[in-house]
């Protein structure tokens, strides 16, 4: 199947990839009930893609919040409304930066690892061995990683946003001297739970988590069983995820907001 696709031109190739990816999504969804008996494997994956990503997510969230606040302070001071900078940090992070940056980092940190791991399983015939042992690799390898990505992304995004607000507070209040009370009261007066937090943070990051996990598992699962093939599949995970995240972000923003 792969060999035939590679002979085609780039458009047919891309369309074929998207089609295969869609079929693969249905296969994973069908395998989820069967994967429930491997619950411990799902927990282990959640540890690996979620908890292990916390450090990079927290650091980046902190710095994104800090730099946003710093930039906004300089622009808003022209209009004498620096007290609104915390609000802008919160809204920009909840609606766009939080889900998108978390998803991009997640693709780079966890997506590549999933692709490389599954690709090497394929290359070293572990997947074939599972099939011989009557263990369904879709239920044991693919579905737990997909589920873990789906669960981990919203949680990571919440942590990212909280750290971004903390970073904005750190720079704005502790360093630049914005009043603590106005910082929070402007934020709480403007940020809406449903509009900003649920439809921004939660729904977007759920969708991005599903897309990144699907692309990562799919690329690993269909990687050519060579070292070059695995390397190429890992690269494609990052490229395809990034494009998919930003394109999906536009569509979701248009629908949700």
């Amino acid at each position: 199947m792969n060999a035939r696709i590679e002979r085609d031109n780039i458009v047919t190739q891309a369309l074929g990839q998207i089609g295969n990816c869609g079929v693969f999504l249905l296969q994973i969804l069908a395998a989820i009930p069967r994967s429930l008996r491997y619950g411990r494997e799902t927990v282990r994956q959640l540890w690996f893609v979620g908890a292990m990503s916390l450090i990079i997510i927290m650091t980046c969230g902190l710095f994104v919040g800090m730099v946003l606040e710093l930039q906004l302070y300089h622009v808003l001071s022209m209009f004498g409304s620096t007290s609104m900078s915390g609000t802008v940090v919160a809204i920009a992070t909840y609606r766009e930066l939080g889900p998108v940056v978390t998803a991009l980092l997640f693709a780079g940190r966890a997506g590549t690892a999933i692709t490389a791991e599954i690709g090497l399983m394929r290359a070293t015939d572990q997947i074939s061995a599972m099939e011989l042992m009557a263990v369904d690799p879709l239920a044991y390898v693919a579905a737990p990683r997909f589920l873990a990505g789906l669960v981990a992304m919203p949680l990571l995004c919440c942590v990212f946003c909280a750290l971004a607000v903390f970073g904005g507070h750190l720079v704005g209040v502790s360093w630049l001297g914005i009043d603590n009370g106005t910082f929070w009261s402007n934020m709480t007066a403007t940020v809406d739970v449903w509009q900003d937090i649920v439809s921004g943070v939660v729904w977007k990051s759920l969708a991005f988590g599903a897309v990144v996990a699907l692309i990562a598992v799919f690329q690993g699962y269909t990687a050519p069983p060579t070292s070059e093939g695995v390397a190429y599949a890992t690269t494609r995970t990052v490229v395809a995820s990034s494009i998919a995240i930003l394109a999906l972000d536009f569509v979701l923003t248009a629908f949700l907001m």
Binding site: L155, A162, V165, V193, D196, V201
Partner: peptide, 17 residues
């Protein structure tokens, strides 16, 4: 990790909105 994630969500929803 899960507890931390939900704690962050609860913080965002109740303290900053």
């Amino acid at each position: 990790f899960i507890v931390l994630g939900f704690a962050a969500l609860a913080y965002l929803a109740t303290q900053t909105s």
